[in-house]
Design a protein around this nucleic acid. Structure first.
Length: 330
DNA sequence: CCAGGTCACGATTCCCTTGA
DNA sequence: TCAAGGGAATCGTGACCTGG
């Protein structure tokens, strides 16, 4: 079982560009809309009755998902195939949860992997078929690859599924937002599969949210960011408005000019002790604290279970807002 | 034996250089 | 002039090493 982590040959997955609803609607009529699964992209190579899994950059992750790859895993009724899909873990509400996956995605010890098979089961959502019984299918249109995928791999057990395709961008966007999903991917059904390419034939439309935050600290930067800062430590007021609650860091979304401006504003506010409790040791270890006076706005994907902003990027200062005016969006 | 630091890997986003 | 791609920064986890 020492295949984990080794780089072996496999196809590189085709990637989606960031898109807008307008461009996505124009991609085809009717539209081809898939759920954007919040999981781990994986290319599956089926041969000699066994599935090998490779992550986006080619890492062999076969050993990490025995329910998809070891004895007893679903059996594809073909001699050989290469499939493309996403490994997904679901929370109690039935929503894909990347934070659940993080419990198991880096495990290497067989005992711990087996424990997570039971505790954090995954489903392999297949959305493409790249090779079948010796034939390269990447030159076929998506519509035909999908038909072959459905024909050939029809009756699989629970851990391997073929998710549905929708035909209305706006309805799918609304429904996915309603259900708390990350977004949708709109594809051109006429498009070929281009391994390793980021193609405008696939567009991801992601839901994002905004949150006002108060800056409570600075973490030093490295490399190009050595002379300015690495990330900002953020907080929001507790419901009682008297204390602050730590909500994580933001380290992207800045231009060099904005970084220099932030540093100029924050330097005079430096204080010795943290202005709040509950900052994880790792974040606090090299932090430079500031008086909680500077309010800004971040765009983010969702809240983690422990109340931290996920994928936050800086959107700008809110000089019109005082820290105690911040409203926490649920 | 534990805590802390560093690394690896999974992910994303953005800047900046490159080349057409 | 503009798009594409490389590079580097971020987050979050576990593995590993080291010093007390």
């Amino acid at each position: 079982m020492y295949t984990t982590g080794v780089r072996t040959t496999s196809l590189a997955p085709m990637l989606a560009e960031n898109g807008t609803a307008g461009v996505a609607r124009a991609l085809s009529e009717p539209s081809w809309v898939e759920v954007k699964w919040d999981g781990i992209r994986a290319i599956g190579t089926w041969a000699e009755g066994r599935m090998l899994l490779h992550a986006r950059r080619g890492t062999d992750i076969t050993a990490r998902y025995p329910e998809l790859t070891a004895d007893g895993a679903p059996f594809l009724p073909v001699a050989d195939a290469i499939v493309d899909g996403e490994i997904v873990a679901f929370d109690v509400h039935g929503r894909p949860s990347f934070s659940l996956l993080q419990n198991r995605m880096h495990l290497t010890r067989p005992r711990e992997i087996e424990r997570e098979v039971v505790r954090t089961p995954v489903v392999y959502m297949l959305f493409d078929l790249l090779r079948l019984d010796g034939h390269d299918l990447t030159g076929l249109p998506l519509r035909e690859r999908r038909t072959l995928l459905e024909d050939v791999i029809a009756d699989l057990d629970a851990p391997v599924q073929i998710p549905p395709v929708f035909d209305d961008v706006d309805a799918a966007l609304a429904a996915s937002r309603e259900f708390g999903l990350e977004g949708v991917v709109v594809k051109d059904p006429r498009s070929r599969y281009r391994p390793g390419q980021r193609s405008p034939s696939w567009l991801k439309l992601k839901h994002t949210r905004m949150q006002e935050v108060v800056v409570v600290g600075i973490r030093p930067g490295k490399g190009d960011r050595e002379s300015t800062l690495g990330s900002l430590l953020l907080a929001v007021p507790e419901p009682d408005r008297r204390r602050l609650r730590y909500v994580g860091r933001v380290g992207t979304g800045f231009t060099d000019r904005i970084l220099r401006d932030l540093l100029t504003r924050l330097e005079p506010l430096r204080i010795d002790a943290a202005p709040l409790d509950g900052v994880p040791v790792l974040d606090a270890s090299d932090a430079l604290w500031v008086r909680p006076e500077v309010v800004g706005e971040v765009e983010f994907a969702n809240w983690t279970p422990d109340g931290v902003l996920r994928h936050a990027r800086w959107r700008g200062l809110r000089p019109d807002k005082r820290p105690d005016e911040i409203v926490v969006e649920s």
